[in-house]
Design a protein around this nucleic acid. Structure first.
Lengths: 121, 121, 121, 121
DNA sequence: GTGGTCTAGACCACT
DNA sequence: GTGGTCTAGACCACG
């Protein structure tokens, strides 16, 4: 279910968080669905349990999942809304990147084309 | 001329590189213009000389500036082209970010509007 | 594995880079092989970690190795090609040196002999 | 008579030394010919007198030129022999460079061709 | 344990 | 005064 690239410069726990969020946003993981246990993921992904734990702790702190001691972790009812909101904060990054591409000589038409294609997929 | 945010997660030397590149792309720094000396910047920005050096070394290695020991560093003739080319590599990042915003519920119209405004500035 | 001459005019970090490249070109270091850690080399060569770091950063920037923070540095798949290409740039230096030797009275036969012997080793 | 590249990474005084040596080896400067005065060169090349002086001092120390206080500097009788001998020391550098090019995949034939052409000029 | 960043301060070669 | 190199030692994020 999850794909981790150990050679990537992006920290493993961030890759995991991102994928959980994507599965939630695309509806593959729904409210109150049970998350795989830390141990399960640890052995199936060959990743240190501490790393999985770190990802889960972060998701829990943001309210994306909730953890019931002794039972496991579950997708929270507000997950989609929370993820959506935090993703919106990326608009600043988006604007900065846009300015940079513009300075690099990327035309508005080229950008528009990329946007069109992204939304058609 | 340069503004450094010591609290940012972006390393100081990268902030400096980015700003030098921006000044070159916007034409404020032109080919063969002399860069501020390592020590000058060090004292004016209250940053350790080694950190400035690191930024300059990186810019030199990429051919954005050329350095003559004992003389100083100067904007290279190819600077704009080189910066432009490396910035174009950000298109991948741009596409990923776009997908994320889309998943977060940002509409195409909203994106288009941001693009329009960015290119009008 | 590495030999550093602290008395040489060639900077320590450049000696290191050169030796890493030689090990890669001769096949002793292969793609995805793990490089010794910065600290390991630092203690075994009695060199400051920053100096090793500088060499590794440079090799990484050129794509000869790739570095995963917290994991280590590894020989990249393209290493041989990249090193080969940059070494070819030395042909200019070679030609200049040749002219100098010629002016110094070194005969063509002598040069040819040296070349023969170099390629026989 | 002399051409200095201020933007070169090669120190100005070394450029000067090299050119003096070349003029001697090619016979343009002969034994007992008078060298341009430090002041003359300084003004014509727009170089700091100290830099010229450094070059002359070095040439004098090696016996390539001799200086008569109040009269000027002159090409010594042994100049050609001295320069020739010191240039021969470059054979080591030559061999190292050759090894490097070989590792980079430059064929023996290619090298031989370069040598042939160098000696035909 | 790994690499990444930064400071402080030193010494060198060159102008 | 300029850049280049190096050491010593610190703190951080990641695993």
């Amino acid at each position: 279910m999850f794909q981790i690239d150990n050679m990537s410069r992006i920290p493993v726990y961030e890759q995991l968080i991102k994928q959980v969020e994507n599965y939630i946003m695309t509806g593959i993981l729904k409210a109150d669905d049970r998350m795989p246990s830390v141990r399960t993921l640890s052995t199936s992904l060959l990743i240190n349990p501490n790393t999985i734990q770190k990802a889960y702790t972060s998701l829990d702190a943001r309210g994306v999942i909730y953890t019931v001691p002794g039972k496991g972790s579950f997708v929270s009812a507000d997950a989609k809304r929370i993820i959506g909101e935090s993703s919106r904060k990326n608009i600043d990054t988006f604007v900065n990147l846009l300015q940079e591409l513009r300075l690099a000589g990327v035309s508005k038409e080229e950008i528009m084309d990329i946007v069109e294609r992204s939304y058609k997929k």
